[in-house]
């Protein structure tokens, strides 16, 4: 303020802007300047490409742009049995990994939270898979599942179970189990292929530690007075878990479910490595591990059908978005926020 007065006193050439306005202007300029590097990158590689991708999806596009097709690519996606097959595989993948990972990590976090000795050491060990490269750890699991030399079949044989083909087995897991028990399982109930089950085992192993650490943080946020009060009321261990821990953890469970679902629709690295390193085709055997994200990559990269692959990407986008919206709706009514 003092500055303004001095300036004004200097003569008739009054500045058009007061000092405060100048400072405002300068601050605005600085604001735009500071966000510009991030804004430029985000615009160029994360926002505008969405429009570009939609434009591509409306064309026949094999490396170079071809004819305008309108919505024909979308029609083709919805008519493509490979697309519906990939959705089925993705649904199997979600059902086989998300609930199990959540249940296991919640159990581990709950146990770790019981003032155990060596908490840090356990947590470090559980978390280790997550920080390793999924390419390298997938390679290890491909070898574990190796039908001829892998340790898993070695263990199965030692306890008297026939060796399995794992990553090379396109037959459904329920069909295989049924056969072993002498039950004839109809083909519609065959379930995910054994190869897909092997991939699910990897996924659960890989993500349990991450979920556990987040659950631990969530458990730490529950005020201990609540437990004390409930104990005075004579609540047992299970009652405490059911009526205090679980409801108060619901935001965490909700967050992890959402991340896992979205992640499942984008799963790539481990399926890419496990199916190819096992000696098969990408998304094999017999496309039984081709999730929608793998199908998209195959159409884009192996078959260079950019227009068609972009249409798949948008269908996937719509699916993920509607999941997010549904989960947020449900979340609002069911999740208990402190």
């Amino acid at each position: 303020m003092a500055e303004v007065a001095v300036q004004d006193a200097h003569g008739p050439s009054r500045s058009l802007l007061t000092g405060r306005q100048k400072r405002r202007l300068k601050e605005s300029f600085l604001g735009y300047l500071y966000i510009s590097p991030a804004a430029l990158i985000l615009a160029a590689f994360h926002l505008l490409p969405v429009g570009y991708a939609f434009y591509i999806s409306l064309h026949k596009w094999k490396i170079v742009q071809g004819d305008y097709l309108g919505m024909a690519n979308y029609q083709k996606v919805l008519d493509d049995p490979a697309f519906w097959q990939s959705l089925k595989v993705t649904v199997f993948y979600v059902l086989g990994t998300v609930p199990l990972t959540l249940a296991l990590s919640l159990a581990l976090a709950y146990l770790l939270f019981q003032k155990v000795r060596g908490l840090d050491l356990y947590r470090t060990m559980f978390f280790l898979p997550y920080i390793t490269s999924s390419v390298a750890s997938s390679a290890v699991w491909v070898w574990i599942f190796n039908p001829r030399h892998g340790p898993l079949n070695q263990i199965l044989e030692a306890i008297g179970i026939a060796p399995q083909k794992w990553m090379l087995q396109p037959r459904g897991i329920f069909e295989i189990l049924g056969q072993a028990m002498g039950i004839n399982v109809p083909s519609w109930a065959a379930g995910p292929s054994q190869a897909l089950v092997a991939i699910m085992v990897f996924v659960v192993w890989f993500y349990v530690g991450w979920d556990t650490v987040i659950f631990l943080a969530g458990l730490g946020n529950i005020p201990s007075e609540l437990y004390d009060a409930a104990k005075i009321d004579g609540g047992g261990r299970w009652a405490l878990f059911r009526h205090i821990t679980l409801p108060l953890l619901s935001p965490t469970i909700f967050f992890l479910t959402m991340m896992a679902m979205i992640g499942s629709f984008q799963a790539f690295n481990h399926i890419f490595v496990m199916t190819r390193a096992a000696g098969g085709q990408l998304g094999g055997p017999l496309r039984t591990t081709t999730t929608t994200s793998i199908l998209l990559f195959d159409r884009f990269y192996s078959r260079v059908r950019f227009g068609y692959a972009s249409a798949i990407a948008f269908v996937l986008f719509v699916i993920i978005l509607s999941f997010t919206i549904i989960q947020q709706r449900v979340g609002k009514s069911r999740v208990f926020y402190q």
């Binding site: 405002r24 601050e27 605005s28 300029f29 600085l30 604001g31 735009y32 966000i35 991030a38 804004a39 985000l42 590689f45 994360h46 926002l47 490409p49 969405v50 570009y52 991708a53 591509i56 979205i262 629709f265 984008q266 994200s293 998209l296 990559f297 884009f300 950019f306 692959a309 972009s310 990407a313 948008f314 996937l316 986008f317 993920i320 978005l321 997010t324």
Partner: peptide
């Protein structure tokens, strides 16, 4: 403080909703 700050921030956050597969080809 700058004009349009909240709008820009919302647009930034919105980019987090875009799955990577959509961006891959463009």
């Amino acid at each position: 403080d700058f004009p349009g700050k909240d709008l820009v921030f919302t647009v930034f956050l919105a980019t987090m909703m875009i799955p990577g597969q959509v961006l891959l080809i463009p």
